[in-house]
């Protein structure tokens, strides 16, 4: 085992453990804080693998913006101190999510194992220059499409939140009958 392996194992275990804690904890805000720990550890994983820019951008966007946004939303709505059970999910939902997680893991593992097998692959494509050439050369259209999708989602969210009250009342009564 090299030093890299040791570091990767450490940050990987921290990442997985805090991710698990963030979905199992009964404290609402703690879940968001554990999510932050998981994301920082994920940045650590990228860093160990040599993808410095990806690690830093992950830190900047996910920890600096997304988690802050999640915390902000929690504080605006409801963020009790202590355990809260009113947002617990049903057993069926938990079972379904576990099956889904297991399926995703199996799919990813199958792809990685069938693709790479036991061959160790040297990762060296993490430099800022290589990454930007790839992103704005080969992958520029998927990248742009993704941003278009996000803008569409944003406009959609705005449209839903700006619906006149009457329309909302109609849809609600429509669903009720």
């Amino acid at each position: 085992m090299t030093t890299h392996d040791v570091f990767f194992t450490i940050v990987g275990v921290i990442c997985a453990a805090s991710a698990l804690l963030s979905v199992t904890t009964k404290h609402l805000v703690h879940a968001a804080l554990w999510l932050m720990v998981a994301l920082v550890a994920l940045s650590g994983c990228y860093l160990v693998l040599g993808a410095e820019l990806v690690a830093l951008v992950n830190l900047l966007i996910y920890v600096g913006a997304i988690v802050v946004l999640v915390l902000f939303a929690l504080m605006l709505t409801r963020a009790p101190i202590g355990r809260s059970h009113e947002h617990d999910t049903s057993l069926a939902q938990r079972a379904a999510s576990m099956v889904l997680c297991a399926a995703t893991t199996a799919l990813l593992a199958a792809v990685l194992i069938s693709g790479l097998g036991n061959n160790a692959v040297r990762v060296s494509a993490g430099s800022t220059h290589t990454l930007s050439v790839q992103l704005f050369g080969t992958w520029v259209w998927p990248f742009e499409m993704l941003s278009l999708l996000l803008v569409a989602a944003l406009v959609g969210a705005l449209a839903v939140s700006r619906l006149p009250n009457a329309a909302i009342a109609r849809t609600e009564s429509g669903e009720g009958s």
Partner: peptide, 10 residues
């Protein structure tokens, strides 16, 4: 520098 100052705000 910008990323870690962002963590401070948390």
């Amino acid at each position: 520098a910008i990323a870690v100052t962002g963590i401070g705000t948390v």
